[in-house]
């Protein structure tokens, strides 16, 4: 691919995919930080554009996830339940736009916020970010089957209305994620 073609393709991706990456970022970081996450994600992409798989959306969201992880690590904390709820509330459609009662909307978001992170991520990558299960699995660095298990568990937990169940430790299936010797 020539430099000109690469630049044009990257520009198209920026216009097409940056809003999707921003949506992903908005549910993880404060509004003030969303632009930074998007910019850093695409800067990584530009530096590796010749090896970024096409279409790039799964790669971009996966990279945004890493950028956000660094961001949160730099702040030395993970988001608490209340903070997660605030972020989800800010990014989700309004009750009117979604055709829901405001109380139902908030109840759904509360249950969503209370899910274990890995289940919520798996669920929303598909339900909100519009990724295919394969793409979502790529983002999370897991197998598609593992992703399906997580989304299944998430849906099951969501329907356990008013449940006070605690979520036990999860098994993470990793095929030598590090791969380094």
């Amino acid at each position: 691919m020539s430099t000109t073609e690469g630049t044009a393709e990257f520009t198209r991706s920026w216009e097409r995919d940056a809003p999707r990456v921003a949506v992903y970022a908005r549910r993880h970081v404060a509004t003030d930080d969303v632009h930074d996450v998007v910019a850093e994600t695409f800067l990584h992409a530009w530096r590796r554009w010749d090896v970024v798989p096409q279409p790039p959306i799964a790669w971009l969201v996966g990279t945004a996830r890493n950028v956000i992880a660094n961001h949160l690590r730099a702040k030395g904390r993970r988001s608490a339940l209340y903070e997660r709820l605030v972020l989800l509330d800010a990014v989700a459609l309004s009750a009117a736009d979604a055709g829901l009662l405001a109380t139902d909307r908030m109840a759904a978001l509360e249950r969503l916020a209370a899910l274990p992170e890995e289940q919520r991520e798996a669920l929303l990558l598909v339900a909100w970010d519009g990724l295919t299960p394969d793409q979502a699995a790529t983002v999370l660095g897991i197998r598609t089957g593992t992703l399906r298990v997580r989304t299944h568990r998430a849906r099951k937990a969501l329907e356990s209305a008013g449940s006070n169940e605690s979520f036990g430790p999860m098994t993470v299936e990793v095929l030598n994620e590090g791969g380094i010797r």
């Binding site: 940056a18 809003p19 999707r20 921003a22 949506v23 908005r26 549910r27 998007v38 990014v91 989700a92 459609l93 979604a98 055709g99 829901l100 139902d104 909307r105 109840a107 759904a108 978001l109 249950r111 969503l112 669920l123 339900a127 909100w128 519009g130 849906r155 969501l158 329907e159 209305a161």
Partner: peptide, 15 residues
């Protein structure tokens, strides 16, 4: 609840 959550999917806004 899952149906409700899918209906709440945020729409990407142009930058």
């Amino acid at each position: 609840t899952y149906d409700q959550i899918t209906r709440l999917a945020p729409a990407p806004e142009a930058s």
